[in-house]
Nucleic acid binder design. Structure first.
Length: 105
DNA sequence: GCCATGGCTAGTA
DNA sequence: GCCATGGCTAGTA
């Protein structure tokens, strides 16, 4: 596994329940700001295999990015179950964004 | 809503 | 070449 991939996986693993991170945030944290799309691709291809909390990753607008209807419902459900509120279709990032720097990692 | 970005992978030679 | 992004612009009300 490439170092970037490794760091992305690690970052996603560390998102605590009830918090979210954005694709761009994770990319930046893994040392490649601007590589947000790769994070999305990695999530898609590796979340099952590596048992990642994929549902805690959303886009910079605070929206669920997944296209498939079932998938997006599931993601929303999982987030709500953890206490992440959604107003409209959006998560309030000022409240629920996880910042690895500040939150003790 | 357009398009630059960039790490990865499938698929060819 | 792909893409579960993101940031900026044009164009409407």
């Amino acid at each position: 596994m490439e170092p970037f991939t490794q760091l992305v996986v690690q970052a996603i693993r560390r998102i605590p329940p009830g918090k979210v991170m954005t694709y761009g945030q994770i990319a930046a944290h893994a040392g490649s700001p601007g590589a947000a799309r790769q994070v999305a691709r990695l999530l898609h291809s590796m979340s099952a295999k590596y048992n990642l909390p994929w549902h805690r990753v959303i886009n910079a607008e605070g929206r669920i990015s997944i296209q498939d209807e079932k998938g997006r419902c599931l993601q929303e459900q999982l987030l709500r179950d953890e206490g992440v509120e959604m107003k409209g279709a959006k998560v309030d990032l000022t409240k629920f964004r996880f910042d690895p720097g500040q939150d003790g990692f």
